[in-house]
Design a binder for these strands. Structure first.
Lengths: 358, 358
DNA sequence: CTGTTAGCGCTTTCAC
DNA sequence: GTGAAAGCGCTAACAG
């Protein structure tokens, strides 16, 4: 005859075995178990071993939420980016994930889709979710950072990466955009190009202004006067609008009496879309117009023509940003030591900027 | 004279205002506040309004961990993928994130880096972290799914996406790889190609076998006999090894007495790397050899030549997988209704498969 | 060395 | 209509 054991209806919680279960099974108190599992010195070696063995055997794993509630921290960090579906961002997330995992932090990723409103919602959710800190690359649209600043003032560690802004005082990690733009422009100049256009985004971020300034600086240093009509800014918040703006910009450039012989593009999307459009419109690159731009795509080699690029150390930016945030969370920094790190970019020369045949 | 208020030392918790704070401030009990904020009918309309107003003003947001602890669920889902730095995966994550956010779930993303060991570690962490369910696209290396199966048996909802396996009985969402491969091969055949090679991965996943079968089926249906020597499998776990294998494979193909006039490639990485290599080795696509492959890159148009592709509905796969998981979590499904959904792929014809000039 | 107890913030009976 | 109290799983101060 079978003895029917009353099936204890489990809570929907995914965890089965708790400290209490172990305590009951081993006829010990909950705190003894807790201490043993935390390797406290006040527990006898024998008891400890017995407990550890039982815990291992029954796949005990502490409930993160209970622990978090108790300790006032969740060992999770929130990451806010414009979009997951983005080459460069994905590489940064890769770096963030690697470092976070090494330090036993989970990452909770949110997308702002370039919208200030969504971004605020993301931050609210993360904060409400109890993250220990936030890594953020702000949306292009965002002008008002007061919410984030107020959270920071309330003690939430925040680190900016990729797109840096002045309004927030904290650690910031990005690429050396000035130098990257300078190098790209200098490369064009040394290859014989003189009428160099610059396609950028319509934002106030340093990521945009630094690149513009690098471009201007290279021109100035080479004795080429800056022609404002060769600078165009695209709407970046919406892929469709961006494409439209780009097509317009190219049409505008090519209709200019003194039209550009080269274009330096400021972002991943702009660079690649621009090449697509130039091809589509029948312009021969680099004969009709040369092209170099910021982008991290591995496919630059397979493009038509192979695209010269400014490569950002995206993975490393992610790693460093995560390290900075974690050190902030763990209190290894006084707020006074906030620093802004600009990692070097790298020019990769390919066929789209072959020396100009004059 | 200033009255010095003793500053209550806050816990390191990022949350400031709690139910208790509101209760104290409004001279009500904690449970009243809780009920009011949950819009319970047992609370008077006036009291409710007063409480809501106060809560809003002070940016009250419930502590996710406390709530989770109490309710036995975390409103978070774990996502395990091979890598964040991957076009197709990023698009799937985008879809997963969108749906999860709509349903007020957070996503915690983990990378297996194609390693079985790391993958198990990811799953363990997620489980210990108390996720309500897991979405997983298994690592190429993984052979043993017993851990995942045991968690599932213990009540953890699991949904497979992208890379589907038979060992686990649950909802599965992927692309219609058989049809995609069939279409791609038929396209080559109808454009006059007869010696069609197939470059695939060395795995047992249906994602690989389905594509192979689609290819074979198209050949058979067209009265072309399948030549095993035109099938090559690459090691996929390591980008460097993959590239090596690809270079070898191409050399092998081109050294064949009856060499292929077209290649059908089975994955994103293989397709794009293959084009890069063909260009590098001086083969003219499609004159020397045509190329079509699975990949979602938006840059196909800008490639040299524009690459014909089989496009997967990656975003939609992510969306659907997340929906399935959430419905599982929320108990809207009996385990008997598990289904496997294969979303249609789409052939995008470009110059790399121009009709063969015989 | 081990156990008791209080409490993290929240929900949920059950009294009043 | 409102409040008191228990308890989710865990840690830590304090007793024994």
């Amino acid at each position: 005859m079978q003895i029917s054991v009353p099936i204890q209806k489990k809570k929907s919680m995914n965890h089965s075995v708790t400290l209490r279960d172990i305590a009951k099974a081993l006829n010990l108190s909950i705190s003894t178990i807790s201490k043993a599992l935390n390797d406290s010195h006040e527990i006898g070696i024998e008891t400890k071993q017995k407990i550890l063995a039982y815990a291992k055997e029954h796949h005990y794993s502490p409930n993160r939420m209970a622990k978090g509630l108790k300790e006032g921290k969740s060992r999770s960090i929130g990451v806010v980016v414009c979009s997951l579906d983005n080459n460069v961002i994905a590489q940064m997330l890769d770096g963030i994930h690697q470092v976070s995992t090494e330090h036993a932090y989970q990452i909770i990723i949110m997308q702002s889709k370039e919208s200030e409103k969504l971004e605020t919602a993301c931050i609210e959710l993360l904060y409400a979710g109890g993250v220990d800190g936030i890594l953020i690359s702000p949306a292009y649209e965002t002008k008002n950072f007061s919410y984030l600043i107020s959270l920071q003032a309330a003690g939430l560690p925040v680190v900016l990466f990729d797109r840096l802004i002045d309004q927030i005082d904290t650690h910031k990690v990005g690429a050396d955009n000035f130098k990257g733009a300078y190098d790209a422009t200098m490369h064009l100049i040394s290859n014989g190009y003189r009428n160099i256009a610059h396609l950028n985004t319509n934002t106030i971020f340093s990521i945009a202004t630094d690149r513009l300034n690098g471009y201007k600086h290279a021109l100035a240093e080479s004795g080429i006067s800056y022609r404002p009509e060769l600078l165009r800014s695209c709407n970046y918040t919406d892929a469709h609008k961006l494409n439209e703006d780009l097509e317009q910009a190219i049409g505008y450039y090519m209709g200019l009496p003194d039209k550009p012989d080269a274009i330096f593009t400021a972002t991943d999307q702009i660079s690649t879309r621009c090449l697509v459009l130039l091809n589509k419109l029948g312009y021969r690159v680099p004969v009709d117009v040369a092209l170099i731009g910021f982008t991290n795509t591995e496919l630059a080699d397979a493009m038509n023509p192979a695209l010269s690029t400014v490569h950002q150390p995206a993975f490393e930016i992610g790693q460093l940003a995560a390290e900075k945030l974690i050190s902030l969370i763990e209190g290894k920094f006084n707020a006074e030591d906030y620093e802004t790190v600009m990692l070097p970019t790298q020019i990769k020369v390919r066929s789209s900027t072959l020396p100009r045949n004059t």
